[in-house]
Amino acid sequence: MSLTYSYSRSILEMENVRFSYLKDKKFINNLTFSIGNGEFIGLLGANGSGKSTILKLASGILKPSEGHIKLWGKPLHSFKNKDRAKLLCYLPQLLDINLPFRVAELVNMGLYPYDIPPQITVDEALEMVGLKEISESYITNLSGGERRRTFIAMTLLQGSGILLLDEPLANIDVKYQIEILKLLKELKEKKDISIIMALHDINIALHFEKVMLIKDGRILGFGNPETVLTADLIKEAFDVGIEIRKQESGRAYISYENNF
């Protein structure tokens, strides 16, 4: 399937998707959205709003009780595991590996779905995420940001065009948050990778091209941050009144000033 042919098509689609962890209690309710190729989307919502569940549904880890999920126009669950892995990749929020795997070994696991390895090598992937010097280090000795980048390098070897990331910025210093955002942006631009990442920092979400605002498993708004991240919708999503201000440059930011 050539990329130019499918460029304008939606690569990931959900239609009336419902899901619940407990019987009789709908958690994800009638979710419908569609994502195009090369998009970089921030999935924003409070704790427990359903961000992770949506990513797990999209990656096939969870199966919807009703509705359809389509990957490149085909039902997600009709794909063989290995074929799906070549198209779509999910990284959980916690990467707590307590075994002595080396960085290069972990990155190499990205090749597991393949019988014939794709063009990119472990070294190239590590170069791209800036970890080439520590390729022989043990993963257990790395910082949270380095761990995250190791797994992103693994997804590069896996070669999937869609990256689903659950809170990749959680629990790491702001310096590494910026590093990872820069890296993801670079991947989107250079490798045409589509990214959906969950986050809960509204200020970071304001910098995204597209934001999906979630509450109680429903979409409150989906589009560019200026239209979605209004004071009203944020109040609804996060249950807190905040003020959106504009910097001199015209960039919006939220202020917590009147909340303390």
Partner: peptide, 12 residues
């Protein structure tokens, strides 16, 4: 060993 979710994501 990386967790069920990553194993799933890697195509197992």
């Amino acid at each position: 060993m990386l967790g069920d979710e990553l194993a799933h994501s890697l195509g197992f």
